[in-house]
Every structure is written in structure tokens, then in C-alpha cells.
């Protein structure tokens, strides 16, 4: 977890965790406890988007949309610091435990366990709901963002018997048949986190505006500014510690977003609520300035 290839991935992951945390903390600061409901709704929309996108891409690849496919061709690769055990993995059942999670660590150390809990309680439930049309059952009985627990325990069931004939055909091979064993490939670590970062920000902005109007937009943009201020020294330190210069090349490897929204095609899908411009001026431009890259 500390080799030359893994460190940049860890840095990208931390940037995403900080993005979520700073935007959410700002929403709570500006909009009060009611922001928690908005945050949960945004996490659900984000996760449903991911589930829907995964389902569509897996179908397009000719794969069966079951649990083996979902987790085999997931949209984000795991952070190298994650330590987990997969206890069971079939097309109908996936059971696993996570013992170390760098995202939970970052949130808890920063004093934002509660914001982490909002994420963890909603994420897998919503993702599976979208991927399976509400037919899978997600259980998360222990989670590292809860102060009672020392691990996460997930149990997901997607039972053939609960599906219509059409969905059964879409998701499973017939019993006894070798069937389609296509497992789509995951995107690269950076592409996965880039999409996750854009969507996370977009849905927080969308729900904040819907629920709190202008105040919601202000809350999110204030969070972006705080994030820029917090990220600059962190990225500089990461560069110094690895004998690198914190330049554009370094950021390409260690920061999950493109520094110019114009150069990122995914923004075309997430252009509502003035999202690209607000990100550019409140995060990217400020970050570049702080790093001397303007």
C-alpha cells in the first residue's frame, strides 16, 4: 500500500473523500441539520446513477446483471489501503467484511463521522436498488463510520425467485447452462474516481439547490472554496514527500479531476445547475492559484 504505483491512487481517493466531506460540512453549516436529509438524498441519487450506469454498461457488454457481474465489473477499483475479506461471492449472494477503509478513516479523523454515516447508510442500498430494479436486498449491519463497530459487514442477496421472467433472463444464466460468463472490465482507478467526484458534487449541488434555493448553492460553493484551501497544502505535501513537484503532471496522477472542466467530456451530462462553471471558479481555479499553476 505504499509502493510507487499505489500512493497516487491513495491520494486521489483522499481527494474524493475530502470533496464529499467539505461540501457536506458546508451544507450543514449553512443550512442546519435539515441538510442531513439533503445529503442522504444526494447520496441516493449519486448511487442510483451509478447503479443505473453500471447496469446499462453491463447489458451493453452482453453480461448478466447479477451480483458477480456487478462487483466483478464495478465502476471504481478499491483503494489499495482497503483490507477486506469476501466470504461468499455467487451470482445471487455476496457477503463481505471490510476491516480498514481509508475513506472512513479520513472522515472519522476529521470529526465528521456523522457525515460518513449518511453516506454509508445510503450508498449500497441505493446502488443495488438501481442495478436490480429494487429486487436485491442489501444488509449492512456493522459499519466503520459507526462508533460501535470495528468493521463493515455487507450481505447482499439477489434471489432468482424474486424476479420476473424478463429480469431473470437478463440477470442469470439458466441453471445447468454454462451461460454467459461475460464480466465487464472496470474503468481505470482515475477514470472511476473522476466520474465519482463529478457525480458526487453534482448531486449535492442539485439537491442543495432544490431544497434550500440560493442558500443551498452558496453552501456548496463555500464548501468548494474550503476544499480548495484544504487540498492545496495536502497535495503539496504529497508531492514533497515523494520527491515530486506539485505540477500539472503530478495532479494528473494524484488528483481525480481535470483542472479545466472544458477538457472533461463527462461534464456534458452534468452541466445542470451551472455545475461546471461553479466548480471551475470555486475549486479548480483557486487550487491552481494556490499551487502556482494558473
Amino acid at each position: 500500500m505504499d509502493n510507487i504505483h499505489e500512493i497516487p491512487l491513495q491520494n486521489q481517493q483522499d481527494c474524493w473523500a475530502m470533496l464529499y466531506m467539505h461540501l457536506c460540512a458546508s451544507m450543514v453549516e449553512y443550512c442546519g441539520q435539515r441538510a442531513k436529509g439533503a445529503i442522504r438524498e444526494a447520496v441516493r441519487r449519486l448511487s442510483e446513477d451509478r447503479g443505473r450506469t453500471l447496469r446499462e454498461s453491463h447489458l451493453a457488454a452482453g453480461a448478466k446483471t447479477n451480483l458477480k457481474t456487478l462487483y466483478g465489473g464495478f465502476d471504481c477499483l478499491p483503494d489499495p489501503r482497503v483490507r477486506q475479506t469476501i466470504l461468499a461471492e455467487t451470482d445471487q449472494v455476496r457477503l463481505w467484511e471490510v476491516y480498514t477503509c481509508p475513506v472512513a478513516d479520513l472522515w472519522v479523523k476529521a470529526g465528521h463521522r456523522d457525515l460518513g454515516l449518511c453516506y454509508c447508510e445510503e450508498y449500497q442500498h441505493a446502488l443495488l436498488k438501481a442495478y436490480t430494479g429494487g429486487k436485491a436486498q442489501v444488509n449492512l449491519s456493522a459499519l466503520l463510520t459507526c462508533d460501535r463497530d470495528n468493521h463493515c459487514r455487507f450481505s447482499v442477496y439477489y434471489r432468482r425467485a424474486n424476479l420476473s421472467d424478463a429480469q431473470l433472463k437478463e440477470s442469470f444464466s439458466e441453471p445447468g447452462q454454462s451461460g454467459s460468463e461475460v464480466v465487464p472490465t472496470s474503468p481505470s482507478f482515475r477514470d472511476g474516481l473522476n466520474a465519482l467526484s463529478i457525480k458526487t458534487y453534482y448531486y449535492l449541488l442539485e439537491v442543495a439547490e432544490e431544497r434550500f434555493g440560493k442558500d443551498g448553492v452558496v453552501a456548496v460553493t463555500a464548501g468548494l472554496r474550503e476544499l480548495a484551501a484544504a487540498l492545496a497544502p495536502v497535495l503539496k505535501t504529497h508531492a514533497d514527500d515523494t520527491l515530486n513537484t506539485c505540477d500539472r503532471d503530478f495532479l494528473r496522477e494524484n488528483f481525480p479531476l481535470a483542472l479545466e472542466t472544458d477538457s472533461e467530456s463527462l461534464w456534458a451530462q452534468y452541466s445542470g445547475h451551472n455545475a461546471p462553471l461553479l466548480l471551475q471558479v470555486n475549486l479548480l481555479d483557486r487550487l491552481k492559484k494556490a499551487l502556482g499553476l494558473s
Binding site: 441539520q33 442531513k36 457477503l95 447508510e121 444488509n139 449491519s141 459487514r153
Partner: peptide, 23 residues
Amino acid sequence: NLAKTLTQEGDDHCAFNVVLRPE
């Protein structure tokens, strides 16, 4: 959330985590 159950092979207890969030 019932991620561990005594009816699941390998589990040695049932883990209930049932939540209702006002938000």
C-alpha cells in the same frame, strides 16, 4: 439490515441493524 444470520452458513449470530432516520 440483517447482515449476519444464524441461518446463513458461516455466521455465528444474527446482526440486526434497523434504522429509521427522521431526515
